[in-house]
Simulated assay, not measured.
Amino acid sequence: MTNFKTQTKLIWAVLLLSCFSMACQSKKSEDTMETTKTSILKEAWGQLPDGQKVSLFTLKNAKGMEVKISDYGGLITHWTAPDKDGKYEDVVLGYDSLAGYLKASPFFGALVGRYGNRIANAKFTLDGKTYNLLQNNGPNHLHGGKIGFDKVVWKTEELQDGRNGLKLNYVSKDGEEGYPGNLNVEITYVLTDDNALEINYTATTDKPTVVNLTQHSYFNLTGGKTDHLGHEVMINANHFLPVDKTLIPTGELKAVKGSVFDFTTPKTIGKGIDDTTDEQIKVGGGYDHCWVLNQPKKDSLVLAASAYEPTTGRFMEVFTTEPGVQFYTGNFLDGSITGKNGIVYKKRYGFCFETEHFPDSPNQKEFPSVVVRPGETYKTTTIYKFSSK
C-alpha cells in the first residue's frame, strides 16, 4: 500500500513537472513571437514645420539587409544590398536627415501619388467633367502636385500576419490637389529573407477618380562610389513610349529594336545615353521614358527589368503587375545636391525603375485605364529583389 502511494506521488510529481515545463516553453514561444512582432525598430526622425512628428522604421531580415522607411512620404531613405563578397552597402540616394527631404528633393525614395508621372497640361476629363491640377512641371502636372503623397505623414502599423513588414495608410480627401473622390490608400512594404522588398498598393474611392502609384527610389549599386553608366540594364519590353518636348507621350508605341532604347538583352546604361542622333535621347536628356512591358496577361506579375553592377557584383531584379516601367537616369541631377555621407549627386548618379501605368493615361484613351470607381479596388504589386554574381 505504501509503495502504491509512493508511486502515485511520483507520477503526479512527474506530471506537474511536465506541465510546468510545457508552460515555460509556451511562455518562451510567446516571448519569441512578441520579439518577432516588435522586431521593426522605430525611432524619432524630427518634425514638420507644422509640428507633426516624423518617425523612421528599420526593417531587417535574417541575411542582414536593412530597409529604412519613414512615415513622411513613405520614403525609403536607406536600403542595403550585398556585393559578391557578402558586404552590405546602401544602394539608394537620399539624405542623412529629414531636413534634406524638406528642403528640395527630386523624389528620393518617395511614394508617389495620387498620380505618378506626368499629366498633360495639368488637366483631365472624367465622365464629362474636367479637373484642373497644378502645373508643376512646365505646362504639365507631375507626381501628384505640390503636396503629393510624398509630402504627407502616413499612419503606420507593423504587420500582424507574421510577415516582416510595415503597413502605411493615408486618406486623400476629395479635391486634394484637384483630384476627385476620397481615396483610401494602403501600402505595405514587406522584406523577405531572400533579400526582396515587396510593395503592395491598394486604394478605394467614393467617386470616380484616376490613380497611378509608384515608388521613386534612385539606385546606384556601386554603393555611391561613382555614376551609374557602367551598370548593365535589361528591360523586358519590345516597345516604349516616345515623348514630346515636354516629356508627354505622343501616343505611339514604338518598337525598341534597332534603337538605343533596346534593352531586351543587357547592356550598359552609358552605351546609348548620350547618342543625340536619336531624337528621343535629345528630348529626354537621356532616358526618361516609359517602356511597355512584355506582359502576357493583364495584371500578371512579370520580370520588368534588372540591373547588374560588374565591379561589386550586385544584381537587382524588378517584378511588377504594372503594364509599364519608367526608366529615369537622373538626367536632372546637376551636382547641386549633397546627399548621404557628404556625397555630391552629380548628373546620372542614380537611376529609377518606376513601375506604373503609362504617363498621361487620363488623356489617352488607347492606354490602359487608370480610372478607379466606387466599389472597385486599385491593386498592384512590385518586388525589388537583390542578389550578387
Rank of each mutant, 00 (worst) to 15 (best):
A99V: 09
I119S: 00
P106Y: 02
R118N: 00
A122S: 01
K123S: 15
Y131T: 00
N132F: 14
T125V: 15
G128M: 09
T130V: 02
K103V: 15
A110R: 08
F107T: 11
P106R: 05
F107G: 09
N132H: 15
L133Y: 07
G109A: 10
G116L: 00
F124V: 00
K123H: 12
F107A: 15
A120W: 06
G100L: 07
Y115D: 05
P106C: 03
L102S: 04
F124T: 03
R114A: 10
A104Y: 10
L98I: 10
A104Q: 03
Y101F: 08
I119D: 01
A99L: 11
P106N: 03
L126E: 08
K123T: 13
F107E: 09
N132S: 07
K123N: 14
Y131C: 00
L111Y: 10
G100A: 06
V112E: 03
A120V: 13
V112L: 15
Y131Q: 02
I119C: 01
G128P: 10
F107H: 13
N117L: 11
G116Y: 01
K123F: 08
K129L: 10
A110W: 05
D127H: 09
R118A: 00
R118G: 00
D127I: 11
I119M: 12
A122Y: 06
S105G: 10
L98P: 03
Y115Q: 04
T125F: 15
F107D: 11
K123V: 04
R114W: 12
G113C: 04
P106F: 03
K103S: 14
A110I: 05
K103I: 11
K103W: 12
A122H: 00
G100I: 04
T130M: 01
A122E: 02
G100V: 01
N132G: 03
A104N: 07
L126W: 12
A104F: 12
Y115F: 15
A99F: 08
F124I: 02
F108S: 01
P106A: 02
L133C: 14
N121H: 15
Y131H: 04
R118Q: 00
N132D: 09
Y131M: 02
I119G: 00
G128I: 09
Y101K: 00
L133H: 07
Y115C: 03
A120C: 14
G100R: 10
A104E: 01
S105L: 06
G100D: 01
T130F: 00
L126P: 10
A104H: 09
N132K: 14
T130N: 00
Y101V: 07
G109I: 05
N132R: 13
Y115E: 07
R114D: 08
N121L: 12
D127F: 09
R118K: 06
L111D: 07
S105V: 08
L133A: 09
D127E: 13
L102C: 01
D127N: 14
F107K: 13
R114H: 09
F107P: 03
A122Q: 06
L98Y: 08
T125C: 15
N121G: 11
A99N: 13
I119H: 07
A104T: 08
L98K: 05
K129S: 05
F108C: 04
G128Q: 12
A120G: 14
T130E: 01
K123G: 13
V112W: 10
L111W: 10
G100H: 09
A120D: 11
A99Y: 14
T130R: 00
R114K: 13
Y115A: 01
L126N: 09
N117I: 11
G100P: 06
K123L: 06
F107R: 08
